[in-house]
Design a protein around this nucleic acid. Structure first.
Length: 610
DNA sequence: AAAAAAT
C-alpha cells in the first residue's frame, strides 16, 4: 500500500459498465431538442419518482453560512442520489428554480471516460486503513482567525454527499491532501478563507468540493429565472484562460451526476457558444476576468445570487495588472458583499501587501498556510547555472541533448522552458525547431487556438518541448513535465516558485534549472534563500552575489523565515485588537520548515492541484 | 519592463 494522500485506487474495476442510469443513452440522444418543462429532468421512457428537493427549507441566503453545518442531512436519506443518470437528481422543473432550462434531459457527458468507473463497493475506510499518517507530521500548518474548525483525516469523515464521494473515488483520490484536510472543513463551516499551499497540493479540489456540496444541499428556489440573464451561485476566477479551462474540467468531474452545472467563460474564443452553455443553466461559473466583465455588461450574467466566490492564484488576481478588474467584478457589480457570500482565496504564494488588499474581500476570515509557502516540494531538484545571455541557446541545447542521451527520461518526458518575453518565446521556439528539437510555444500574442494546440501537443508529447511566457507559470497541471528550465529568470521570486511548480507533481520527481547572470542580480538573494530553505545545494558564487544584497529584488517574500505562510494580521504593523487566535495543529517545524510531500499521489492521478 | 486579460 502506498502511503500517499491521494494515491490511486488500484486498478480494480476496469471496463465496468458505465454509470448506472446513463447506460441507455447513445450518442444520438445527446443533443436534445426542445423539452417542455413538465417533461424535463426525466429520462426517456420511464418516469422514476422524483425525490423531493432536499436541503433545509429555509437554507437560502445567509443561513448556513455562518455556522458549522449540521451533519449529514440527506446523504443517508437519499442514497441513490449520485447514481441518477440525469443531472438534477430528477428534480422537476419547479422546485429548483433557476437551474437552467431544458438541459436536464440531456445525457451528462461522463468526464471520466468510459473505463473510469471505479469499484463503487469499496469504502474509504477500507482504502485508508494502513496508510501512514506520519507523512503529515512534517508539514507545518498554521491557522489563524477565530474558531478554526478542526481538520479531518479522511474523506469519509467529511459530509460532502454520496454523489461527490463517488466522484472522489472516480478521481482516484484516496485521502485528502493537507490543504484539503484543513480547507474543506473550514469551508463547509461557511467561513471565509485565505489559503496558502504548495504548488501541486490539491487546491482546486479544496475549494470545489465545498462549493458543490453547498450548492447541492442549499435551497435556491428563489433564484430568478431570467430569460436572457443567468444567475450562477458560485464564481471561480483565475488569471489565465488555460487555467480556467483546467478548473472547469476538474470541476465537471467533481460535480458529475450531482445536478450541479459548471460552465466556463474566457476570452479568445467565440462568445456565442459560451452564451449557449450559459443559457442552458449554470450553477458554478469559472471565468477569466475580461470575458466575465463583458458578460456582465451585456447583462448575460448577474452576480446577484453568488453565494461562493473563489479566486485561484489569488495573489496574481490582485496584483497591479488585475486588481482594478477584480475590484470591479467583486465590488462594483451586483455581487453580494463580504459576509453575505462565502469567499475563498487560494495561492501558493501570498505577499503581505496582497493579503492586505485581499482582506477587503473577506469577512472574519481564517488564514491557512500549509507547508512552507512557495516552497517547492522535495521532489523538485533545483539547480542554478551561470550562463551569459549569449550562451543561453547553446547551453540549452546541451541540456536537451544530455537529457535525451541520458535515457532516464522516457519518450514522454516533457521539458518546459520559460522565457521573459513573447518575442523571445517565438524566437526560441523557431531556433529550437530549425535545430531539430520538437518545440512549440505558448504566449499571450498567439491565438487562443494556437495556445490550446501548443498545450495539447505538448501534453501528448508530440512536441515535448514547450517554450512559454508566464502565461503558463501558474496552476497548469501538465503530467510528465520532468524538467523546467528558467531560460530567463523572472524578476519575482514568487513567479519562480510557480514556474518550477509545473514539475514535481503527481508524486513524480522533477528538475528545475535556472540560467543566472548579471541581469538577475536582484534575484540572487531571494533565490539563494529559497533554495536553502528547500534544502537545495546553493552554488558558492550565488551565495556571494546574494551577500552583496542588491537592492530591490522584489524581495517581498511571501513569508520569509521558516515558513512563509504568515497571516499579515499578525504583523506588528497591522495591529488590531484581538487579531484572532493562532493555533498550530501540527508539529510545526520538525523538518526545517518546508513541507515534505514525499510519497506524492501515485501514477495515473492527474488533477488540477494548484 | 513584461506578462496576463474583452472585442
Amino acid at each position: 500500500m502506498r502511503n500517499s494522500w491521494a494515491d490511486s485506487v488500484e486498478n480494480t474495476a476496469t471496463d465496468n459498465v458505465g454509470p448506472s442510469g446513463g447506460s441507455g443513452a447513445s450518442a444520438s440522444t445527446r443533443r436534445s431538442s426542445y423539452v417542455p418543462p413538465h417533461l424535463r429532468n426525466k429520462p426517456m421512457g420511464a418516469e422514476p419518482p422524483a425525490p423531493s428537493p432536499g436541503g433545509p427549507p429555509s437554507g437560502n441566503d445567509r443561513s448556513g453560512f455562518n455556522g458549522p453545518t449540521s451533519g449529514s442531512r440527506w446523504v443517508g436519506s437519499r442514497p441513490d442520489y449520485g447514481r441518477q443518470g440525469y443531472s438534477g437528481g430528477g428534480r422537476s422543473g419547479g422546485g429548483w428554480g433557476g437551474r437552467g432550462g431544458g438541459w436536464g434531459r440531456e445525457r451528462e457527458v461522463n468526464p471520466f471516460g468510459n473505463d473510469a468507473d471505479v469499484d463503487l463497493e469499496q469504502s474509504f475506510d477500507q482504502e485508508n486503513s494502513g496508510i501512514n499518517f506520519d507523512a503529515y507530521e512534517d508539514i507545518p500548518v498554521e491557522t489563524s482567525g477565530e474558531n478554526v474548525p478542526p481538520p479531518v483525516n479522511t474523506f469519509a469523515e467529511i459530509d460532502l454527499g454520496e454523489a461527490v464521494n463517488l466522484n472522489i473515488r472516480r478521481c482516484k483520490y484516496v485521502k485528502p491532501t493537507p490543504v484539503q484536510r484543513y480547507a474543506i472543513p473550514i469551508s463547509l463551516a461557511g467561513r471565509d478563507l485565505m489559503a496558502c499551499a504548495q504548488t501541486g497540493s490539491g487546491k482546486t479540489a479544496a475549494f470545489c468540493f465545498p462549493i458543490i456540496s453547498g450548492i447541492m444541499r442549499g435551497d435556491f428556489s428563489q433564484r430568478p429565472r431570467g430569460v436572457r440573464t443567468v444567475f450562477p451561485l458560485a464564481l471561480i476566477l483565475s488569471p489565465t484562460r488555460e487555467l480556467s479551462m483546467q478548473i472547469h474540467e476538474e470541476a465537471k468531474k467533481f460535480s458529475y451526476q450531482t445536478g450541479v452545472r459548471v460552465v466556463v467563460a474566457y476570452g479568445g474564443a467565440p462568445i456565442n457558444q459560451q452564451l449557449r452553455e450559459l443559457e442552458r443553466g449554470v450553477d458554478i461559473l469559472v471565468a477569466t476576468p475580461g470575458r466575465l466583465v463583458d458578460l456582465l455588461e451585456r447583462a448575460k450574467v448577474s452576480l446577484q445570487m453568488i453565494r461562493y466566490l473563489a479566486l485561484d492564484e489569488a495573489d496574481r488576481m490582485l496584483d497591479m495588472g488585475f486588481e482594478p478588474q477584480i475590484r470591479r467584478i467583486v465590488e462594483q457589480m451586483d455581487m453580494p458583499r463580504p459576509g453575505e457570500r462565502q469567499t475563498m482565496l487560494f495561492s501558493a504564494t501570498f505577499p503581505k501587501e496582497i493579503q492586505r488588499l485581499a482582506s477587503d474581500f473577506l469577512a472574519n476570515y481564517i488564514f491557512l498556510a500549509v507547508g512552507r509557502v512557495g516552497s517547492s516540494t522535495d521532489l523538485i531538484l533545483q539547480r542554478v547555472e551561470f550562463v551569459h545571455d549569449g550562451d543561453k541557446r547553446s547551453h540549452l541545447m546541451d541540456l536537451l541533448h544530455a537529457q535525451m542521451a541520458n535515457g532516464v527520461h522516457g519518450k514522454q518526458a516533457l521539458t518546459l522552458v520559460f522565457v521573459e518575453t513573447k518575442k523571445g518565446a517565438d524566437a526560441l521556439e523557431h531556433w529550437l525547431c530549425i535545430n531539430g528539437f520538437p518545440a512549440t510555444a505558448i504566449h499571450g500574442d498567439r491565438t487562443q487556438q494556437e495556445r490550446e494546440q501548443a498545450l495539447r501537443t505538448f501534453k501528448r508529447g508530440d512536441t515535448p518541448i514547450l517554450v512559454a511566457t508566464d502565461v503558463a507559470a501558474r496552476g497548469l497541471d501538465i503530467p510528465h513535465v520532468s524538467h523546467v528550465i528558467n531560460f530567463d529568470l523572472p524578476n519575482d521570486i514568487d513567479d519562480y516558485v510557480h514556474r518550477i511548480g509545473r514539475t514535481g507533481r503527481a508524486g513524480k520527481s522533477g528538475l528545475a534549472t535556472a540560467f543566472f547572470n548579471e541581469g538577475n542580480l536582484s534575484m540572487a538573494k531571494p533565490l539563494a534563500d529559497l533554495m536553502q530553505e528547500a534544502n537545495q545545494e546553493v552554488p558558492e558564487w550565488l551565495t556571494r552575489y546574494a551577500s552583496r544584497s542588491y537592492g530591490g529584488g522584489r524581495n517581498r517574500r511571501s513569508g520569509g523565515g521558516r515558513f512563509g505562510g504568515r497571516d499579515f494580521r499578525r504583523d506588528s504593523s497591522y495591529s488590531r485588537s484581538g487579531g484572532g487566535g493562532v493555533s498550530y495543529y501540527e508539529g510545526g517545524n520538525s523538518s526545517g520548515g518546508y513541507g515534505n510531500y514525499s510519497g506524492g499521489y501515485g501514477p495515473g492521478v492527474t488533477s488540477a492541484w494548484d
